[in-house]
Write a protein that binds this DNA or RNA. Structure first.
Lengths: 138, 138
DNA sequence: AGTAAATTTGCAACATTGATGCAACCATTT
DNA sequence: AAATGGTTGCATCAATGTTGCAAATTTACT
């Protein structure tokens, strides 16, 4: 596990620091998406708030994690699959938010369908979020 | 116009106050979605920040406007079509965010497609946001 | 129309979330 | 082991959102 963390950081040409290791580890261990608050809760007093922000920003830039849109104004992050390159997220999967456990889950195997747009609109990217009940809460 | 505003408020059993009239009017005049900041900008010094927050909350509860999910943590609101009842938003349309003019537009005629979810997941509601370039910016 | 009751508003204060500049610190490279 | 360049923590600031309460406004009633 620690090996995997180090490897991912190296692959992305990031120096191996405590905060990055710890935060990346959290993502690898978590089955759902994490918010900034989740991360602060889990790391306790280990890191400065600013460090967490900057670490998350860095990870997004490098394509290690991606953002998930929400209706409340909270930002959620989740691990990208391997085919994400810096600046080029190739994620095209649906996200699921469970109303019971509040977990946000990447449905990596469910692709976002194309939609036909009215004339003039040119799409570059789509996001889809489904809310409901997950398997464990049903 | 003012008539329409009053009518909508009455239909929803809301008292007719200056802030509600003004804010609802803004939504009727606007072709896209509005953020809290947009509204503050447009109303100038007319209303307290808190009043705007509370008015928007009320409108959402009554089903007059609906929230639009975003990846940055900004909240956008847009008018609901007539078939929204208090607590029951029947909106099922795709939202489009133009990267040029930054406008958020309700594509009322584009329905969110169904997707097949993995076993165990039960959907109750879907959101879809497409980013790209709108007709005017192309 | 005039008044009482219920809603709504504005203010003050506070909490949360996020950004920036800078000095100290640490990881990497030689 | 030392130099350098990236990273962290602190202080500070700004934006965004929430709550309690008194004053003002709207509505309902007579």
């Amino acid at each position: 596990m620690n090996n995997e963390v180090t490897q991912i950081l190296k692959q992305n040409r990031l120096s191996i620091t405590g905060s990055r290791q710890k935060i990346l580890e959290l993502f690898l261990l978590s089955d759902g998406a994490l918010s900034h608050a989740d991360i602060e809760k889990n790391t306790g007093e280990s890191f400065d708030r600013v460090t967490v922000y900057r670490t998350l920003q860095t990870f997004v830039e490098k394509g290690i994690i991606h953002l998930i849109p929400t209706t409340d104004n909270s930002i959620k992050y989740a691990l990208c699959k391997n085919d994400c390159a810096p600046g080029h997220h190739h994620d095209n999967h649906v996200h699921f938010i469970c109303g019971e456990c509040e977990k946000t889950i990447c449905l990596d195997d469910v692709n976002i369908p194309m939609v036909k747009l009215p004339g003039g609109f040119t799409p570059t990217r789509s996001e889809m979020v489904v809310t409901g009940t997950c398997g464990e809460c049903k």
